[in-house]
Design a protein around this nucleic acid. Structure first.
Length: 877
RNA sequence: GGGCGCAUAGCUCAGUGGAAGAGCACCUGCCUUACAAGCAGGGGGUCGCAGGUUCGAACCCUGCUGCGCCCA
């Protein structure tokens, strides 16, 4: 379907664009020809983007589609500009998600991972990956991603695993990794620790229970939303300056249900204004309480196990935490210790970002990265401009985060992932083993059971994928990467981590020069897409029904830096319509001999209309180029849409028909201009809509592929202002005549005899035939009798139009129109005069502004005179 | 509680001090030889509210209201 040539070698196109039929074939051809394969030994300037590695369990959603469109557009343009482009694809191993998937599979067979054992289970995961993982890679091909498949990477690959071990060892040796017993976020369902950012907070309904501890004068009331944790309380804390509790500080109080006595301590961090000003302290089950415990040397009593079941205290033992809560409250109530209950009580509750289970703060022994020095470097790289964040407003958020970072919990109690390379010896030794070292052997030595957070390995992505820690040619050539593109919601998860690791591993060289953060995809009414809302749109469904180009154009067009994007089916249909328009325009041009084989003749041999469209093309080229540099995808798509549809198709193509009809050199020149404009505009559009532009451009030019065509540059030609003014005059005149015809109920196709007078005075003499063609005016015949005349005011003069409408005209419609035009002109006049009558304006406003208002006043006055005369004439008729 | 952002046509959004814009939706008429996935014409806005700065404010400043996001 791509190229049809008839016997005389005139290229033609099928009547319609059927993307589904050709996209796969086009894509495979690009890959086979090696267009996307980077060459580390070329001497072109490098341009590198690493794909944010999608989850191996994942499939392509709209957010991916948007981000991939952005990256594909960026890399395709640079490739056309002659850069050595590397867009590197791959996936991460998604520890928790993948383990969940395989464990579910096992559960269907009635097995748990423990039945298989660690080694067999990991084998089983690899098997799953080989069979069903990475579906997204095939989906990327469908939307046209020009990635270098020869360099595809996976975070669990040998090389990337070596990078993980290398950086772990380096951090360990630099005392930037340590093991400690801390309160961490624990998911009782996944049975693993989570980092802070893997916890999502939501306002949930719970209950606030006020409990009286102690008796009589020594009684103190504490409030909690997690009553069951009182079983593990080891103190009550009050603010040291709180008048109400001075007499109690230092005393002890009996903890109900347990019979234990706990101290009442004074701590600055207690908010005296919240509740009663007294808080229960459970160091083993609350991060703030843990810190209070540290400050006051309190014991930590763990009362829950790793699945959230109470492990102590007789009647409550064996109860799930959510069963224990009401049970504890009931028991306290029985003792008359419940002072108040507030229900429902809205409070922030942390949920596991993977499975939505309520996270339990849990005291446990975990590995941490000491982030302070790394985070400072990550902040500095942005502060001193080595890495630039787009849009810059988001840099503040980045700083707020990296400058206030808690140490990062990196150990996960999973089997799927990079196992922590630390061995423990029989004498309590701890040995961190580097990638090329042998672990200690012998009686009593064993490796740490935990694996590393997936983000630990994907944080290395910009350099581990290029071969680090080996000093490969790719690393030398393509690091630092040029742009990192992702949604702003991933800024902390991933971008900040890559910054920390990149600077640390690569001698303080930043992992990327630019970070482009796009918005999030929402539905037509601005709501977040989610399965529970049922408003998810599948990008591949749109790709199927409207074409991958339409999907991409919709996404690119909606991308405005710093803001989210609403999507609806109509948007995709609109983009599909644009593709159809482009198709039909090219088909028309080819059918009329448009060509790039003949150069566009010198300017002096061209018409005003030719020069105008070439100048507009030039301006559009420059504009689009600048917008690409600024990551303004929405605006550049709009600019191309407007140029293609409103200027090229609506005006130039229509006017070109007149020039083609003249034949001879005029027609030849027009064919060259048509060919040239399409050639350039297709190249400009290619980064965003690669498939249709490839088909059209190769048919038009006969060249190999637009993928490797040169990116257009403005010609440097001085724009022809006179031509632009004349074309503007033609447009206004044509529109006015069409307006008159429509008002008079003359059908669009109906030909009407008429004359255009005064065109010479308006500098439009050469353009009268075009005006006649576009407004379907016939030459006056023998029986011609003008039944109506009207004037059109143009900047260059007034043109008189007379028509033979073969009889009466609709006076009422005409009066209505004139009254409306008059009102507009009068309003304009009043506005201008209001300004000019104000001495403060004429004295203080810049001269050019005052001059402009004077011109507008004169024009408005002329319009009024003309319309008034016309109305009077109409009254007389 | 802390921080940030947004409020412009029915919907989704552009618009950084000098004539209120786009896409979609809507109304009317058209199969006019590239295109009905189209063509031509048209209607529609107190630019959230109240003050202020300025000759001039959608745009700058202050306050208010209503939404949204991030963090705690």
């Amino acid at each position: 379907m791509t190229e049809h040539r008839t016997a005389d070698q005139t290229p033609t196109l099928p009547p319609s664009w059927n993307p589904a039929e050709v996209e796969a074939e086009l894509y495979q051809r690009w890959v086979d020809r090696g267009y996307f394969t980077a060459d580390a030994s070329s001497d072109k300037p490098p341009y590198t983007i690493v794909l944010p590695p999608p989850n191996v369990t994942g499939s392509l959603h709209m957010g991916h589609a948007l981000n991939h469109t952005v990256m594909d557009a960026l890399t395709r343009r640079r490739r056309m500009q002659g850069y050595e482009v590397l867009w590197l694809p791959g996936m991460d191993h998604a520890g928790i998600a993948t383990q969940n998937v395989v464990e579910r599979q096992l559960a269907e067979e009635g097995l748990s991972r423990h039945d298989l054992g660690r080694e067999k289970f990991v084998e089983r995961v690899w098997q799953w990956k080989a069979e069903s993982g990475g579906q997204i890679l095939g989906q990327m091909r469908r939307i046209g991603d020009g990635v270098d498949w020869s360099r595809e990477r996976f975070t669990m690959d040998e090389g990337l695993s070596k990078a993980v071990l290398t950086i772990f060892k380096k951090l360990y040796d630099d005392d930037l990794i340590y093991r400690a017993e801390r309160i961490i976020n624990w998911c009782p369902r996944c049975r693993t620790a989570l980092s802070d950012i893997e916890v999502e907070h939501s306002e949930d309904e719970g209950e606030l229970v006020s409990i009286r501890y102690g008796e009589g004068d020594n009684a103190i009331v504490v409030a909690t939303t997690r009553a069951e944790t009182m079983l593990g309380d080891t103190a009550v804390a009050v603010h040291p300056d709180d008048e109400r509790y001075q007499h109690l500080i230092g005393t002890e109080v009996e903890l109900p249900l347990t019979g234990r006595r706990v101290p009442i301590v004074a701590d600055e961090h207690v908010d005296p204004a919240f509740g009663t000003g007294a808080v229960k302290v459970t160091p083993a089950h609350d991060p703030n309480d843990f810190e209070i415990g540290q400050r006051h040397n309190l014991p930590s009593i763990t009362v829950m196990n790793e699945v959230g079941v109470i492990t102590a205290h007789g009647p409550f033992e064996g109860l799930d935490r959510f069963e224990a809560r009401p049970a504890v409250v009931a028991a306290l109530r029985e003792q008359g210790r419940i002072v108040a209950e507030k229900r429902p009580y809205l409070h922030a509750v942390g949920h596991c970002s993977r499975c939505d289970t309520v996270v339990e703060p849990r005291l446990s022994l975990q590995w941490f990265v000491r982030v302070a020095p790394l985070a400072r470097a990550a902040g500095d790289a942005v502060r001193d401009g080595r890495t630039r964040i787009h849009p810059p407003e988001l840099a503040k958020r980045y700083f707020d985060w990296v400058d206030n970072l808690h140490d990062w919990c990196i150990s996960r109690q999973l089997w799927w992932g990079h196992r922590i390379p630390v061995w423990y010896g029989p004498e309590g030794q701890t040995v961190c083993v580097g990638p090329d070292e042998q672990p200690p052997t012998g009686e009593g030595w064993h490796q740490d059971e935990d694996v590393l957070d997936t983000w630990f390995s994907s944080g290395l992505w910009p350099f581990s994928t290029l071969g680090w820690p080996e000093r490969t040619a790719d690393l030398a050539r393509f690091y630092p990467t040029t742009v990192l593109s992702t949604g702003y919601d991933i800024l902390f998860f991933w971008v900040a981590r890559m910054m920390m690791f990149g600077l640390y591993a690569m001698d303080d060289v930043q992992p990327f020069d630019h970070v482009f953060l796009h918005g999030l995809i929402r539905d037509a009414s601005g709501k977040k897409m989610s399965k529970s809302r049922g408003n998810v749109i599948d990008p591949l469904d749109w790709a199927d029904r409207y074409g991958a180009d339409a999907l991409r154009f919709t996404l690119a067009r909606g991308t405005n830096p710093g803001s989210d994007m609403a999507l609806a089916e109509e948007w995709a249909a609109g983009s599909r319509n644009f593709c159809t328009k482009l198709w039909n325009a090219t088909r028309f041009a080819l059918a009329n001999g448009a060509t790039t084989a003949q150069p566009v003749p010198p300017r002096e041999q061209l018409t005003d209309v030719d020069r105008w469209i070439l100048d507009r093309l030039d301006a559009t080229t420059a504009e689009v180029d600048g917008l690409f540099e600024a990551f303004q995808f929405g605006k550049l798509c709009d600019a191309l849409y407007h140029f293609t549809w409103d200027e090229f198709c609506d005006w130039y193509v229509e006017l070109a028909k007149v020039q083609l009809a003249e034949g001879g050199e005029r027609a030849d020149a027009t064919r060259a201009v048509l060919g040239h404009v399409l050639d350039v505009v297709l190249r400009l559009l290619h980064p965003v809509i690669p498939f249709i532009t490839e088909t059209l451009w190769t048919t038009l030019t006969g060249a190999e592929s637009v993928v490797v065509a040169a990116w257009p540059a403005p010609s440097g030609q001085q724009p022809d202002e006179t031509a632009a003014r004349r074309v503007e005059g033609v447009q206004k005149l044509v529109t006015e005549i069409r307006r008159f015809r429509a008002d008079q109920g003359i059908k669009p196709g109906q030909r009407v005899a008429g004359r255009v007078r005064g065109a010479c005075c308006a500098d439009l003499l050469d353009h009268v035939p075009s005006v006649r063609a576009l407004t379907r005016l016939d030459e006056p015949g023998e029986r011609y009798a003008a039944s109506v005349t009207f004037e059109v005011g143009l900047p260059t003069g007034t043109v008189k139009v007379e028509l033979d409408t073969s009889g009466a005209i609709d006076v009422v419609a005409e009066r209505k129109r004139l009254a409306k035009d008059l009102a507009t002109a009068e309003k304009e006049l009043a506005q201008c005069e209001g300004k000019l009558d104000n001495p403060a304006f004429t004295e203080r406003a810049p001269a050019e502004v005052v001059a402009k208002i004077r011109e507008r006043r004169a024009a408005a006055q002329q319009d009024i005179d003309r319309i008034t005369a016309r109305i009077e004439a109409l009254l007389g008729s």
